[in-house]
Design a protein around this nucleic acid. Structure first.
Lengths: 246, 246
DNA sequence: GGCCCGGATTGGTCTATGCCAATGTGCAAT
DNA sequence: ATTGCACATTGGCATAGACCAATCCGGGCC
């Protein structure tokens, strides 16, 4: 199989940083190009993949550094802060905006509303050791008077829903897919444009089966792992699935 | 916010292909560079992001084409073939290799074995309308005499485990994260090196709590969405999570 | 000491260009 | 009609070089 040169350079750099401690600075791109007998363009392509992989971080004007390897796990049936706290992380949250918008087509569908209905929107930046790791936009239907104040008093969205509005969640569904950081998101998360992100949509229902939350979250793809665990009942046992061939 | 030129070019091309049918061919990179008054390098960078997004596909010597948008959903508690069949897709599977290997450190940990213990390895290429969409490597502990023949007779791994070896799954855990296609995987999946993939690890246990499967799957990140749905019991209710602030 | 400014350093973007590799086409030979 | 080969086309890889923007550092100034 033909392996392009930038990929060999990538492995070379990987070997180079294997022995370096976290935070160590790499040679400059110009130096690496000379040492590895290639062009700066090729070095940059190799480094870019390592940045996407989460192995390196770079800042204009400063340099390229060995990134702290840290993989945080998220469980669908728990809350963001609960998840991270359980793993010994120190989660934080920065409120960006609370406002009321009119539901568009998609939003109305997920929350079982008619388009144009008012929906509360809560935009937050989730942080970890002061470092942004996720952008979260929650949509909540129905009247929630004083939401901003109640949220400010409690911090946690779920706690606010339960205590201030007596809304208890009964079921949640998460979908996980990948996307790329656009300039705005990259700016908020402090990462490069084009880095892969985990795009998570969460819908939550109350005991009556009414949707009470539809949230869109963007996580750094190189920092998170999503975990789902299930017990199987016989009726949905995998072994009962049809044969693989059509 | 400063937006680089290749990002503007990306939007321009996005506008261009919005009106084109699936499979339509784009102008060549050299033509686009001229029309948009930029260099071919910049055009390529823009196109590359659209390829990563799943909007475009390109083949050396042929051209760049509008990709078929198709997002398939995967549910953790069902099998691969069951998932896709339920959505009206026509899943297939191509056996690449069945062999027995010695468990390394990681594998032994997941299957609760001692390193060096023999483990069956089943490597398959999952397909969809003859198109490869996932690379799946299953690891199965314990003696499974005649595994290759039993698999060949049934097609489905889970069905084989249940019918031929009386192994019934009781619980599964999936983890989902992102990674990049290395040259080997890209070759097997017929995609470009460096495309983001969904890396899914599945562990399955039998009723006795013994691990019976540890599988590593690589899905095209632009084609799949992972779905997890849960009912909440009070003891693990999100509202009981700690406050957001540390 | 503290502040400000200018220059050096480093990554970020863009251009222009050359060659390679895969593909498709059309003509010629059989 | 089929095969085979040369050639044009198109994307893939790599280079060299220029300029921009963020950062850092040190000297000079208050």
């Amino acid at each position: 199989m033909k392996v392009p040169k930038y990929y060999l350079v990538k492995r070379e750099i990987q070997r180079l940083i294997a022995d370096l401690p976290v935070g160590a600075v790499l040679p400059t791109e110009r130096e690496l190009a000379e040492q590895l007998e290639t062009s700066r363009t090729t070095v940059r392509k190799a480094i870019s993949e390592l940045v996407v992989n989460g192995r390196l971080e770079r800042t204009q004007g400063r340099g390229t550094f060995v990134a702290r390897p840290k993989l945080m796990q998220l469980r669908p049936l728990t809350s963001f802060s609960q998840d991270l706290a359980a793993e010994g992380w120190r989660p934080g949250s920065k409120m960006l905006e609370i406002d009321v918008i009119e539901a568009d087509e998609e939003l109305a569908r997920h929350l079982q509303l008619t388009p144009g209905a008012p929906v509360h929107r809560v935009t937050r930046l989730r942080t970890q050791e002061e470092e942004p790791i996720a952008l979260e936009i929650a949509h909540l239907p129905g009247p929630l008077p004083g939401l901003a104040e109640e949220m400010a008093a409690r911090g946690s969205l779920y706690r606010t829903l339960a205590e201030a509005y007596l809304i208890d969640l009964d079921a949640v569904e998460d979908t996980v897919e990948t996307t790329l950081a656009d300039p705005e998101t990259a700016n908020l998360l402090g990462i490069e444009v084009g880095l892969p992100l985990l795009l998570v949509h969460r819908t939550a229902w109350d005991a009556g089966g009414r949707p009470v939350e539809w949230t869109r979250s963007l996580f750094r793809g190189d920092r998170f792992r999503f975990v789902a665990r299930h017990r199987l009942r016989d009726t949905e046992h995998p072994a009962s699935a049809g044969a693989t061939r059509p």
